[in-house]
Write a protein that binds this DNA or RNA. Structure first.
Lengths: 337, 337
DNA sequence: GTCGGGAGTCGAATCGATTCGACCACTCGA
DNA sequence: TCGAGTGGTCGAATCGATTCGACTCCCGAC
């Protein structure tokens, strides 16, 4: 059931069927109805490959996700879901590529051979070979997160630096003098993962500004590590009375550690950080945190990419979001010793 | 940079380039090298649409995921990741469609217009319109989970019925007389979600066989609901000394509830269930549970689908997995009152 | 009465690959 | 020595859509 078959049955030429479908030239109401009837009867849908070949675009976006070996965090999952959803709303399909680096077969397939009209990249590092590769290839793309050289590319990101600084100031205002940063894993930091580095820098700066004592400790992205992290913190840094966290995945473990060592939150330990609302509200007591708007970010990324595809020569646009910090129940005045 | 350009620069015809690439006819070593050199220099990759059009297949699989509105559970995420990974290993791409039901635009696009060679479906209900739709369409497909009429289709599933029964027997062997089933949400049960129904039936049967008292309570798929579920259980069914769970997402809440009410596990309450290893090991104390092998299941689904695509007429194959129950620390002898 | 123009339609070219039939130049066996 | 077979290559057809140029009506304006 190709367009020729429809044309034959409707007694018109193939081009007329095409014009009836796309509306790019006038077709009489009568003919259009006859064609539509045949189409409905046969359940015809134009062949995607043929259309893509002729039009030179595929109506498909590529989404590069971290490989399955690395467990996706809840936030990454949120991005994937929201990107797919936003694309579906715009009648676009999404092709997935699980690839960590450049010169990965799946990544190569995605970006060459005109398989997609544009690409969305996540888990961006400060120096990211995939970004330079896409630049070379000339394929429109948008990143969720940004590199150390942000001006040449389109991206959407959360301003981790500012958010961490705000958390520190909030805690300092409450009288806390010793604050720890629950950072992401050492591997990610070593790999040059942006948010971890920006959080680190902003933390150090804010601590210095307020004349506080800061403890910057990385932590693997899983519950068990979170528990251990807290034990070590209590053990080695007894002066710390507040925590700033950007490590969502460690939260359940942090909670377990707190309960096991029987530490009262916020009376003995205040916590403020950055997390998806889902996690912040799941914490006991509910976490004072900046809620990362994953849904909006995915939608923005798709919107930016569509703009870029439409006008590839326009100057690249960025979106640096600084969601407000929702005051919940995990922060309170410092214990006066 | 299409095949014609390569041919021109290498001084051969287009067909020779094609044969050099696919190896479907002999090409002299010398010619092949000359062609390869040009290809490497220009970074040529065959146009996917043109190839798909001519070959009649796209080397792309479709994966239907629940819409973003419903938060993906960890297990579903595991399936997505493993399917994408397995497909990448076989040099196949994966097209995502977030759609709950039939006659969803994204679903329609996926299955018509020859966009994909086959489809993998998840979140299968006992009666699933998408399955009948795919049957009608004649597109090869595999489901993760199975309907009430499993014989006509290919699928991979975990035998929730047997696993729940085994949990009950295990708990009964330990002397427990009152056992609760922590089931999935009422919405899923109402929608005819298979695992929930099969668990229910097997639970009732095993309880009856052993002459026990069973409490079958649904629970929304989130931590908060899990916490509430446990409170209600303690409140209304004080005779229950053991829990069988198939609701992964409720586990963190269950844990919080247990800790808040200060219930000792397994001394006062034993727990056994079905969960991804990740969740079972994250529970405190570690959960006695059948580990759902999400990675293997995704890989199996892809393998079955490839078989089906290769020989669509072969009788459909199924795979019903019954992973062993890993004895961990959450089950113990019933308290003798 | 005719001329311009738009509505409506058709045929043919095109996108970039694969593939079939044909052809040439060799080699090997009878 | 001749024919069969084969390695190596080419040209043309093909997949299923879109799109351009051209053609036919028909209507209204001059």
């Amino acid at each position: 059931m190709n367009i020729g078959e429809i044309a034959r049955r409707a007694g018109v030429s193939r081009s007329t069927v095409s014009y009836a479908l796309t509306g790019r030239r006038p077709v009489s109401a009568e003919t259009r109805q006859r064609i539509q009837a045949v189409i409905d009867e046969l359940g015809y849908r134009p062949n995607a490959a043929a259309r893509a070949l002729k039009e030179g675009r595929t109506r498909t976006l590529g989404l590069v996700i971290p490989p399955a070996s690395a467990r996706l965090t809840d936030m990454q999952l949120g991005f994937v879901a929201s990107v797919v959803e936003a694309a579906a709303q715009a009648d676009l399909d999404v092709l997935l590529s699980p690839s960590g680096g450049d010169h990965d077969r799946s990544f190569e397939r995605l970006i060459s051979g005109n398989r997609v009209d544009g690409v969305i990249l996540m888990e961006i590092r400060l120096e990211d070979e995939r970004v330079t590769r896409l630049h070379r290839e000339g394929l429109p793309f948008v990143t969720i997160g940004h590199t150390a050289h942000p001006h040449g590319t389109c991206w959407v990101d959360v301003d981790y630096g500012t958010l961490v600084a705000r958390c520190v100031h909030h805690l300092a205002d409450l009288g806390h003098r010793g604050i720890a940063l629950l950072n992401r894993s050492t591997e990610l930091i070593a790999a040059g993962y942006g948010p971890a580095h920006r959080a680190q820098a902003a933390f150090a700066e804010a601590i210095h500004q307020r004349g506080l004592t800061g403890v910057d400790l990385p932590c693997a992205d899983d519950p068990a590590a979170g528990e251990e992290w807290f034990e070590q913190l209590r053990d080695r840094h007894p002066g710390v009375t507040a925590i700033t966290t950007i490590n969502e995945a460690a939260l359940p473990g942090l909670q377990r550690g707190i309960e096991r060592l029987d530490v009262a939150v916020p009376r003995e330990m205040s916590i403020a950080g950055v997390a998806a609302r889902h996690w912040a509200e799941g914490f006991r007591p509910q976490l004072t945190a900046a809620d990362v708007p994953t849904l909006e970010m995915g939608a923005h990324a798709v919107a930016l990419l569509l703009e870029r595809i439409a006008t590839p020569t326009a100057p690249p646009r960025h979106l640096l979001l600084t969601p407000p910090i929702s005051l919940r129940d995990s922060t309170g005045p410092a214990r006066t010793t």
